[in-house]
């Protein structure tokens, strides 16, 4: 009984916090923009186009969630784009060699865990800056992807791996269902578990966290492992969608993922950020390209619009926060 009540209070508190927050503002803006665009171009909110957007959302969403956890503990993971390509290549090569789906998928996830563990160890034990550690990996694993594949795409002739990227469950694309599952898991971890409280504590004040007995190193290693693991899931989705492992894929996605997280309210000062906010931030990032195509704007505009949205959202947010503080 008491436990249930506690949970209810917790849920109410979260609902209360949601009101007038970043998450709500983003939903309203996204919905309004979608409706307006749909008036001009009725193809925008068709089932097909929404599925297209949601497939992209799955990719950016998973990477942005990974980034959110890392940024909350005052880190950054610049390697996720390269990990996407690398794990895609690994999957394709293992499958080509063994014809075994479980082995191919397992190899990708396994490699990702090892890489994440390596990041975590260098950050916590050697005390290197996360930026440098993951910058090294960005370079290394992009390079290895090219070395292993010699730049050629490696075909994946497995319907089950392709299903991960192309399949539908009811009307829902499989990647979206995966994203949904990961959202539920990460919301639980971040907002309802001890681990989540540790993560926020470390981000808020790492020294205080260590002094009050938070297993800082273990938590940071977990966060980096989760980041590369999510990147490898994206690697499987992307490889499945294209039915091949491709070394050049997902270049620059690490920064798109950061942008998604930050638009969703994650702060570089640490200790701030939510999974739901991040998913909406990622939705903004995954809609930009689609909206421009729908409105028949030249593809040249994509970069400019993306950059302007990032700086305007973040600047407006900071200025509004300053003003509300003054009041």
């Amino acid at each position: 009984m008491a436990g249930n009540e506690k949970k209810e209070i917790k849920l109410l508190r979260i609902a209360g916090r949601l009101r007038g927050t970043r998450e709500l503002n983003l939903i309203v803006i996204i919905a309004a923009v979608s409706v307006v665009i749909n008036i001009f171009q009725p193809t925008f909110l068709t089932r097909f186009n929404v599925q297209v957007i949601s497939r992209q959302l799955a990719v950016f969403g998973l990477l942005s969630i990974a980034q959110t956890f890392v940024i909350i503990v005052l880190g950054i993971d610049l390697s996720v784009g390269s990990i996407v390509a690398f794990t895609g290549i690994i999957t394709a090569m293992v499958f080509a060699a063994t014809e075994n789906v479980v082995l191919a998928v397992g190899a990708a996830l396994g490699f990702a865990l090892v890489i994440g563990f390596y990041h975590g160890i260098l950050v916590t034990k050697v005390k290197m800056a996360p930026f440098v550690v993951t910058l090294g990996s960005l370079s290394i694993f992009r390079g290895l992807s090219f070395v292993l594949s010699r730049g050629y795409p490696i075909l994946i002739r497995s319907p089950r791996i392709q299903w991960l990227g192309q399949g539908l469950i009811g009307p829902f694309p499989v990647p979206l269902v995966i994203l949904f599952a990961v959202v539920i898991y990460t919301v639980f971890i971040l907002h309802f578990s001890k681990l989540g409280r540790y993560i926020y504590t470390i981000g808020g004040n790492p020294v205080a966290a260590r002094m009050s007995g938070v297993p800082v190193n273990a938590v940071i290693i977990y966060v980096f492992c989760q980041a590369t693991l999510l990147a490898s899931i994206v690697g499987l989705i992307v490889a499945g969608r294209m039915a091949q492992g491709l070394a050049s894929v997902a270049a620059g996605y690490e920064l798109t993922a950061v942008a998604g997280a930050v638009i969703g309210g994650t702060s570089f000062l640490g200790g701030q950020g939510t999974v739901i906010g991040t998913v909406f931030g990622a939705l903004v990032m995954s809609m930009i390209g689609n909206v421009l195509i729908t409105l028949r704007v030249d593809a040249y505009w994509y970069n400019l619009v993306t950059g302007l949205i990032i700086i305007i959202v973040v600047a407006a947010d900071t200025l509004l926060a300053k003003r509300s503080k003054r009041n």
Binding site: L269, Y300, W301, N303, G307, L308, I310, I311, V314
Partner: peptide
Amino acid sequence: MISIVKLSPFIVTLASLSIFRGIAVISTR
């Protein structure tokens, strides 16, 4: 942007990475 608006340098220059590549591509097609 960094010292007066107090945005993180990472975000400000990440936006510029996109914006100025965009202008370079748009102005030359």
